[in-house]
Nucleic acid binder design. Structure first.
Length: 580
RNA sequence: GCGCCCAUAGCUCAACCGGAUAGAGCAACGGCCUUCUAAGCCGUAGGUUGGGGGUUCGAUUCCCUCUGGGUGCGCCA
């Protein structure tokens, strides 16, 4: 919609530039959408911005600009207001035109071509496969999936990846936990109480039972000679001792089967859970594979070759402080094993070699301390660290009424994403997750979400969409003819109709802005606005009137609203039902 | 202690990278169903944008400071 005023304004500014009134024509013009109708459809503050360099009072300059504006079929009138704003009042034709545009473009109304061949790598969720996804992961999943859709719609090529932390100690702890439950599944009692540092969730028992059914008592012998876990003061030491024992008595092959039993089952569960949630990845990147391929070794060597490494106390350190980090970081431990950070360096190094133009990492907000060191590693490797964008997603706190639900993966006390979806439904869950900015804490009250499920804002928007389809059904029942071609849109002269049309023009701009800001919530808020505006119109104005031309024009407007709602909901992964 | 994020109506949140009189939803109060779905609409009330300074035509937005929350500071992942 801004283009209606922008063309004229550029012309006017060029004229004034030629006359020597202003030193230069700004490269970029921005318009505001005034809150007040008296301030027109579009407002420009250009006179306020150029007043100083032009040496003119803002209002005088605004008046000069106004006089220099060429006639335009789209602009009804322009006013100078306030401290020097130029308020553009558009001709109704400019507003009505959007309806034809929506009905021509259909699913593509709002689609942008901002990407210009840019390929963006988007990494999100990447939860450790040590248990089912919980409500915190759900937020990252919903946010990432919506952002991916949004970026694609804005014209970027997007590659979604889940980084699977399938190596490392947490997975070993899972394997040990599975083993302990396996012993129980075989009706053997443990010589000591189930250790506190092991995973206690019910899913571990299920995995263990499956393992027992497949493998029989084949792993039971490993219980013999197991260290006395009660003998350790520290729970972490106890579980590590057990892990070491299992690795040595089972041997590499059998231990891997035990390890894999948990990993594969949990990964499959996460995959299915996300799939059901409408969240799909192009690739699941295994940390294990990364290490096995030698990529970690290669990345560390590259850092060494670049001259940013040193050895101290038997460990290999990366001099990240050379790039602004708080302290240097260990890459390879005294015991020869690479750190998690080393894998991360390798993973990002490898990402950069895959030909993407930009990278977006979506991390839990508690990982923000990692940003400086990852950036440092990229810079040390001679890579453009500014091409990596890290989006931090704040926690989702769960409440039952006023009581906070404490969640701990280890203790198995958490509400899973699946439970949440079953309680409130996919649509409501997807919508609620992206209803607030990612950098805001999200308080999700389960009780409220269940109790007021029919009051969810998502239904409000879906209802608006369904109402349009209901109009078609109603019209057909009454034997009213539908339009066979684009009706005369100039019949739409009601203020509410023009307001709705103006709102439709805003959608493409909102897509652009939401994509560039990486803020899907902008779309959610826009849809609420559009739905509200339509409900108001629906209540105030009869659409299925006798007069065919007017009826068709109003139905065209309603169709355009429904299409835009559907397009926006699709970006958020929410369905657009034709009937409630 | 140091770093990062946050603070807006009673509650949950917006505010188009500095714009005009800070907006929605819920909760509260009062209206609207013999007329296209009342999962809806209309109206009323609700604010010193945590406090205090500064920058300028103009600040919720940028800078400083204080207060109050969150989070991070491992040879864990």
């Amino acid at each position: 919609m801004k283009h209606f005023a922008a063309e004229s304004l550029v012309q006017a500014l060029k004229t004034l530039h030629q006359q020597g009134v202003i030193p230069e024509v700004p490269a970029h013009l921005d318009f505001d959408r005034p809150r007040q109708v008296e301030h027109g459809d579009l407002a420009s503050n250009i006179a306020l911005l150029l007043a100083r360099s032009a040496g003119l009072p803002p209002r005088n300059l605004a008046e000069r600009i106004r006089e220099a504006l060429p006639d335009s079929p789209w602009i009804k009138r322009v006013e100078v207001a306030g401290p020097g704003f130029l308020n553009f009042f558009l001709h109704p034709v400019a507003l009505q035109r959007v309806i034809a545009e929506v009905l021509t473009a259909r699913k593509d109304f709002g689609r942008q071509s901002l990407g210009l061949g840019q390929k963006i790598h988007l990494e999100f969720v990447s939860a450790n496969p040590t248990g089912p996804l919980h409500v915190g992961h759900g937020r990252g999943a919903a946010y990432g999936a919506s952002l991916a859709e949004l970026l694609r719609y804005a014209g970027f090529e997007v590659f979604c990846e889940y980084y699977v932390n399938d190596a490392g100690r947490q997975m070993d702890i899972l394997a040990a936990s599975v083993f302990l439950r396996y012993v129980e599944a075989a009706r053997q009692s443990l010589p000591w109480p189930f250790p506190a540092s092991a995973y206690r969730g019910e899913y571990v028992c299920e995995i263990a039972r499956g393992l027992y059914e497949r493998e029989g008592k084949g792993f039971l012998f490993a219980l013999e000679g197991a260290p006395d876990l009660t003998g350790y003061a520290d729970g972490d030491q106890a579980i590590d001792a057990l892990i070491a024992h299992l690795k040595s008595v089972l041997g590499e092959e059998a231990y891997l089967r035990l390890h894999g039993a948990g990993l594969q089952e949990i990964l499959a569960d996460i995959h299915a859970d996300l799939e059901d949630f409408g969240v799909r990845f192009d690739h699941w990147y295994s940390e294990r594979t990364l290490m096995a391929s030698g990529a970690v070794h290669a990345a560390v060597q590259a850092l060494e070759a670049a001259g940013f490494c040193y050895e101290e106390q038997g460990a290999l350190w990366f001099r990240s402080t050379a790039f602004g980090d708080d302290k240097d970081r260990v890459l390879r431990r005294e015991n020869g094993a690479y750190t998690y950070f080393a894998s991360d360096v390798a993973y990002h190094y490898e990402k950069y070699q895959r030909g993407f133009t930009g990278f977006i990492d979506m991390w839990g907000a508690d990982h923000h301390g990692y940003i400086p060191r990852v950036r440092a590693s990229l810079e040390a490797l001679g890579l453009a660290s500014e091409r990596l964008e890290v989006l931090l997603v704040q926690f989702a706190n769960l409440y039952r009424g006023s009581e906070k639900v404490s969640m701990s993966t280890r203790a198995g006390e958490f509400v899973t994403l699946r439970q949440l979806r079953e309680e409130v439904g996919n649509d409501a869950a997807r919508f609620f997750y992206v209803l607030r900015r990612a950098d805001q804490h999200l308080d999700f009250d389960l009780e409220l979400a269940t109790r007021h499920s029919e009051e969810n804002p998502v239904y409000y928007i879906q209802y608006a969409h369904a109402r349009v389809h209901s109009l078609h059904r109603q019209g057909s029942e009454r034997g009213l003819a539908e339009a066979t071609e684009l009706p005369d849109l100039t019949l739409l002269t009601e203020p509410k109709e023009l307001e709705l049309a103006a709102l439709l023009w805003r959608f493409p701009e909102q897509v652009r802005s939401a994509a560039l800001d990486r803020e899907p919530h902008q779309i959610a808020f826009y849809l609420k606005d559009l739905a509200a505006s339509f409900h108001t119109y629906y209540n105030a104005t009869r659409i299925l009137v006798e007069q065919p031309q007017l009826r068709w024009a109003r139905m065209a407007l309603a169709d355009a609203v429904a299409q835009t709602l559907a397009n926006g909901l699709a970006l958020l992964g929410v369905s657009a039902p034709t009937q409630m």
